[in-house]
Amino acid sequence: MQVVLHLVRHGVTRWNQERRYLGHEDQGVISGELERLAPLARRLQGMHWTRVYCSDLLRCRQTLRYLLTGNEVQSAALSGNTEALPLPGTVYDRRLRELHFGEWEGKTYEDLKGDPLYRRWIEDPAAVTPPGGESWEAFSSRIQHFLAGMHQDLSRSCGKDENGEAGGRSSQKTPDLLVVTHGGVIRQIAAATVPDTPFWSLRILPGEELRLKLAWNGQRWQGEIMS
């Protein structure tokens, strides 16, 4: 089984602009920023998606809705609108949330640089958990769980031939899957699936797309970066 995974980071939020840590805080995209995604939206709207997945947080729901429908929604911070209507067929998944930064949510590097625990976390995030936040082990585990679930979804829906065995669509076009999520999640998915790709080796800006071509090797997804 092979797939092309289109990973899109949500549009710009107020805390993104202010360079504050933004994990589970449910901010919307700044009004007007979604329009900057118009070139990507035009390309994505012309594609057929075998599966669409999205973080359940507002900034990702707003971004997805704009990308697939062209309908801009106002930022919760600016307009008080805290909803983006769900799109039929989309899986909104909590496992695609950003790392939870706990007490460091909303803080900047300048706010935290004098904290010895923060300095240790910068040096080795796998060894330190933000106070009240999420451990690196828990974060990477839920991303792995999502990836395994993605394989199960595809196997159930389109991966069986006439004999009920996997691979029945091998002669057809490689399925395209869209995932709208967060920068850390995109890095972690790439690090977990593409050999020799350290987490910090990728920089994905708000509104950018990373494409991966992945194959299931019997135990996990593995592949390469396309763009």
Rank of each mutant, 00 (worst) to 15 (best):
I122V: 15
L212V: 02
L202V: 04
E208S: 14
R119E: 14
E224H: 11
W121Q: 05
S157F: 13
R142D: 03
F199E: 04
G46M: 06
A148V: 10
H24E: 13
M47K: 11
E209K: 08
Q74M: 06
R203D: 13
I225Q: 06
K113I: 14
D161A: 11
V91Q: 12
D124V: 02
L58F: 10
K173D: 14
A166I: 11
E208D: 12
V3Y: 00
R61H: 08
V91S: 13
N163M: 12
Y109V: 10
E123I: 02
Q74P: 07
T90H: 01
R119D: 13
Q45I: 09
D124K: 09
L78E: 15
V180L: 02
A127D: 06
R156A: 15
T50H: 13
V185E: 07
R203G: 08
K113N: 14
S31F: 07
V180W: 00
E83W: 12
L7Q: 09
I189L: 07
P206C: 04
R187T: 09
G114S: 13
T108R: 03
R36D: 06
Q45H: 08
G168M: 05
P116M: 04
P131V: 10
L177P: 03
L40M: 04
K160C: 01
P198Q: 09
A166S: 12
L177E: 05
E105V: 11
P175C: 09
E18A: 15
G207D: 10
R43F: 07
A76R: 08
V128P: 06
N163P: 03
T174A: 03
L68K: 03
M226V: 14
R65V: 09
L40P: 01
A215F: 03
H145N: 13
V91T: 11
L7F: 07
A192I: 12
K113P: 07
H10L: 04
Y53R: 13
W15H: 00
S155C: 12
L210D: 02
H145Y: 11
E98V: 03
A166P: 08
Q172P: 01
L44G: 04
Q172F: 12
R120A: 15
R9P: 08
V12Y: 01
T193W: 02
A215S: 13
D93N: 11
T197Q: 09
R9G: 07
T50W: 10
T129Q: 15
C158S: 06
R59P: 13
L5Y: 06
T69S: 03
E33N: 09
K160S: 05
D56L: 07
E162W: 12
G223S: 08
G89Q: 15
R61L: 04
D153L: 11
A38H: 10
G132H: 10
F101H: 04
T193R: 03
D115E: 05
T69K: 01
D196P: 03
V29K: 04
S31I: 09
R14F: 08
T69V: 01
L99N: 00
E18N: 06
S141E: 15
A38C: 10
T129K: 14
G46S: 08
L37P: 02
A41S: 13
S55R: 00
E35R: 14
E103G: 13
I186D: 00
F146I: 09
L58V: 14
T90D: 04
P130Y: 03
P88H: 15
T13L: 00
P116F: 07
G23N: 07
L154D: 00
S79P: 11
G102M: 11
A84D: 03
W104E: 00
I189K: 05
E162Q: 14
